[in-house]
């Protein structure tokens, strides 16, 4: 077995061990109101943090990403679902890059 294979096994085992730890130790509903509130906010907070400023760095210059963010927020606020919002963001970036070139 070459060393790349060992690196893959070692890093993959670590990544997946991290994923299964919580369900091994947390079975039922958590009693603490603070912890439940903490876990209630986590998804939205962490996704927001991962979206900005990363979306402005995914594109060549920050502006297309920023426009995609604003357009996506408006579209989602108006009630559009996952797929339409994603497609709208892609189109905004594509059009921006197309106008520039």
């Amino acid at each position: 077995m070459n060393s790349t294979a060992i690196y893959i096994i070692v890093t993959a085992l670590t990544a997946n061990l991290i994923r299964i730890l919580p369900p091994l130790f947390i079975r039922g509903q958590i009693k603490s109101r603070f912890l439940r509130s903490f876990l209630y906010y986590i998804p939205y907070v962490t996704l927001a943090i991962m979206t900005f400023p990363a979306i402005t760095q995914a594109t060549e210059s920050p502006l297309p990403g920023l426009l995609a963010l604003v357009t996506g927020i408006i579209a989602a606020w108006r009630g559009l679902g996952l797929f339409p919002v994603s497609v709208i963001c892609c189109i905004v970036v594509f059009l921006c890059e197309w106008f520039v070139s």
Partner: peptide
């Protein structure tokens, strides 16, 4: 940016 569009929609 498709991934971020999904995050926004969530």
């Amino acid at each position: 940016v498709a991934l971020y569009g999904m995050f926004i929609a969530i």
